[in-house]
Protein backbone atom coordinates (compact mmCIF):
# COMPACT_ATOMS: atom_id res chain seq x y z
CA UNK A 1 0.00 0.00 0.00
CA UNK A 2 2.83 2.42 0.80
CA UNK A 3 3.54 4.99 -1.90
CA UNK A 4 6.81 6.41 -3.12
CA UNK A 5 9.03 8.34 -0.72
CA UNK A 6 9.37 12.01 -1.62
CA UNK A 7 11.95 13.96 0.33
CA UNK A 8 13.26 17.48 0.52
CA UNK A 9 15.15 18.10 -2.72
CA UNK A 10 16.14 20.80 -5.16
CA UNK A 11 14.35 19.05 -8.00
CA UNK A 12 11.03 18.15 -6.35
CA UNK A 13 8.20 19.25 -8.71
CA UNK A 14 10.78 21.21 -10.71
CA UNK A 15 8.96 20.70 -14.01
CA UNK A 16 5.64 21.82 -12.55
CA UNK A 17 7.09 24.96 -10.92
CA UNK A 18 8.91 25.91 -14.16
CA UNK A 19 5.65 25.45 -16.05
CA UNK A 20 3.82 27.65 -13.53
CA UNK A 21 6.47 30.39 -13.78
CA UNK A 22 6.26 30.26 -17.58
CA UNK A 23 2.50 30.90 -17.42
CA UNK A 24 2.39 33.04 -14.31
CA UNK A 25 1.36 36.28 -16.06
CA UNK A 26 -1.40 34.56 -17.98
CA UNK A 27 -2.72 32.84 -14.83
CA UNK A 28 -2.59 36.04 -12.79
CA UNK A 29 -4.57 37.80 -15.49
CA UNK A 30 -7.16 35.07 -16.10
CA UNK A 31 -7.26 32.85 -13.02
CA UNK A 32 -6.41 35.14 -10.11
CA UNK A 33 -7.48 33.62 -6.78
CA UNK A 34 -8.18 30.19 -8.32
CA UNK A 35 -6.30 27.01 -7.40
CA UNK A 36 -4.44 25.65 -10.40
CA UNK A 37 -3.57 21.97 -10.69
CA UNK A 38 -0.44 21.23 -12.71
CA UNK A 39 0.91 17.80 -13.52
CA UNK A 40 4.14 17.63 -15.49
CA UNK A 41 3.93 20.35 -18.13
CA UNK A 42 0.16 20.45 -18.24
CA UNK A 43 -2.49 22.56 -16.58
CA UNK A 44 -5.08 19.98 -15.54
CA UNK A 45 -7.61 22.54 -14.35
CA UNK A 46 -8.44 25.45 -12.09
CA UNK A 47 -10.69 25.25 -9.05
CA UNK A 48 -12.43 27.46 -6.52
CA UNK A 49 -11.11 25.53 -3.50
CA UNK A 50 -8.00 23.56 -2.67
CA UNK A 51 -10.12 20.54 -1.73
CA UNK A 52 -11.60 20.42 -5.24
CA UNK A 53 -8.11 20.69 -6.73
CA UNK A 54 -6.77 17.86 -4.54
CA UNK A 55 -9.70 15.59 -5.43
CA UNK A 56 -9.18 16.30 -9.14
CA UNK A 57 -5.47 15.64 -8.72
CA UNK A 58 -6.09 12.24 -7.12
CA UNK A 59 -8.62 11.33 -9.79
CA UNK A 60 -6.24 12.42 -12.56
CA UNK A 61 -3.00 10.71 -11.54
CA UNK A 62 -3.46 8.87 -8.25
CA UNK A 63 -0.75 9.59 -5.70
CA UNK A 64 1.74 11.01 -8.20
CA UNK A 65 3.03 14.44 -7.07
CA UNK A 66 1.21 17.45 -8.49
CA UNK A 67 1.52 21.17 -7.99
CA UNK A 68 -1.53 22.90 -6.54
CA UNK A 69 -1.12 26.61 -6.18
CA UNK A 70 -3.40 29.54 -5.46
CA UNK A 71 -2.79 32.01 -8.26
CA UNK A 72 -1.50 35.35 -6.99
CA UNK A 73 -0.64 34.07 -3.53
CA UNK A 74 2.89 34.84 -2.38
CA UNK A 75 4.94 31.74 -1.74
CA UNK A 76 6.38 31.51 1.78
CA UNK A 77 9.86 30.19 2.47
CA UNK A 78 10.45 27.99 5.49
CA UNK A 79 13.63 28.71 7.41
CA UNK A 80 13.74 26.20 10.25
CA UNK A 81 11.89 24.29 12.90
CA UNK A 82 12.84 25.03 16.49
CA UNK A 83 13.25 21.38 17.46
CA UNK A 84 16.40 20.97 15.41
CA UNK A 85 18.13 24.09 16.61
CA UNK A 86 20.67 23.09 19.21
CA UNK A 87 23.42 20.57 19.86
Amino acid sequence: MAGAAHELSETFLEKEYSFYELHREEYERDLFGRFVLIYGEELIGDFATIEEAIKAGIEHCGVEPVLIRKVGEKEVVLRSFSYNIGP
Partner: peptide, 18 residues
Amino acid sequence: VEVARELNLKPVGGLPVK
Protein backbone atom coordinates in the same frame (compact mmCIF):
# COMPACT_ATOMS: atom_id res chain seq x y z
CA VAL B 1 8.25 11.63 5.24
CA GLU B 2 8.14 7.94 6.09
CA VAL B 3 4.65 8.34 7.56
CA ALA B 4 3.48 10.14 4.41
CA ARG B 5 4.84 7.25 2.36
CA GLU B 6 3.29 4.58 4.57
CA LEU B 7 -0.09 6.32 4.44
CA ASN B 8 0.12 6.52 0.64
CA LEU B 9 -0.56 10.27 0.72
CA LYS B 10 -0.46 12.37 -2.43
CA PRO B 11 2.08 15.22 -2.67
CA VAL B 12 0.13 18.37 -3.54
CA GLY B 13 2.87 20.97 -3.76
CA GLY B 14 6.33 21.84 -2.51
CA LEU B 15 7.33 24.19 0.28
CA PRO B 16 10.55 26.13 -0.40
CA VAL B 17 13.07 25.64 2.39
CA LYS B 18 16.05 27.94 2.66
